[in-house]
Design a protein around this nucleic acid. Structure first.
Length: 271
DNA sequence: AGTATCCTGGAA
DNA sequence: TTCCAGGATACT
């Protein structure tokens, strides 16, 4: 579930909570959830926390030259949670303990998520370069979208989910943005008009901003760093509203599948 | 471009 | 008991 707004919420909360702390212990309860040797990060301090697409990057002190750093890369995938000062439950996969005895719990019901150690800035940069532009960046312009859309016959919904083309949009916010822009999710990307592209770009930025303001969407497993739910699910425009009335035109919202993913739209006002 | 797959648990 | 789920990738 965690998409850009959910991961950004955690990034901001981690930044003001764990920066400066020293890792004293790493407990791996499920091998698959931690890639690399957990002993390698013991004794290291958290320098800063950043986000790229749906990934968290925690910068750590290195152990050789002062200018070398290590990085912890975290992908929450569908059901990952990062909770600070909680206690373990049956879905806890990794516990990171700091020297002040406070703890960060990585819970992940479906075990698709992971934590990974990256040892060089170069490797981190390479990882970051695999993603398309961030929606809040200058690069994410109508011109850029027009260019990538023109090259594909895929449905617009699938293009929005493609992390190599655009960073951070997942199943929830793609449905939300397409509804706001009045575009049918099945429409071929290359067939969008300039006006539709402009509207879609603005809609994407607006729904992601609203998501961040709401602390993310917690209709299911997502939680903020303190364990509390996000609130965006209370503001869903179309997502999970199948069978209900469209908020714009009162028509009934439909649910279909695109690329195997549940997709919600209004047949009347999304063309 | 479409489907299976990694896992677990809740809903149907 | 079967079906389905917010991500991403490896297949055909």
């Amino acid at each position: 579930m965690p998409e850009l707004p959910e991961v950004e919420t955690l990034k901001r909360q981690l930044q003001r909570t764990i920066v400066g702390k020293k890792i004293s212990q790493v407990i791996v309860l499920r091998e698959k959830s931690f890639q690399g040797n957990p002993k390698e990060i013991i004794g290291k301090k958290i320098i800063e926390v950043e986000r790229r697409a749906k990934i968290l990057i925690i910068k750590l002190t290195g152990n050789l030259h002062p200018a070398t750093y290590n990085y912890l890369i975290i992908h929450l995938k569908l059901t990952g949670q990062l909770i600070y000062q909680s206690k373990a439950n049956k879905h806890t996969r990794v516990i990171i303990e700091f020297s002040d005895k406070s703890r960060l719990y990585f819970n992940d019901l479906r075990v698709f998520g992971w934590i990974r150690i990256i040892k060089t800035k170069n490797e981190k940069q390479k990882m970051k370069n695999n993603f398309g532009p961030e929606p809040f960046s200058q690069e994410f312009s109508a011109g850029y979208l027009k260019n990538i859309f023109s090259k594909t016959a895929r449905a617009i919904k699938l293009v929005l989910l493609d992390q190599q083309l655009i960073s951070g949009i997942g199943n929830i916010y793609s449905s939300e943005a397409l509804w706001k822009a009045g575009i049918r999710p099945t429409k071929q990307a290359r067939k969008l008009s300039n006006l539709e592209i402009k509207k879609l770009r603005e809609a994407i930025i607006m729904v992601l901003e609203k998501g961040i303001e709401s602390g993310g969407a917690s209709d299911n497993t997502y939680r903020q760093l303190n364990g509390m739910s996000g609130q965006y699910q209370k503001h869903f425009l179309v997502y999970e509203r199948d069978g209900k009335k469209c908020r714009k035109c009162q028509n009934i919202i439909k649910r279909i599948k695109i690329g195997g993913r549940g997709t919600f739209y209004c047949p009347k006002c999304q063309r």
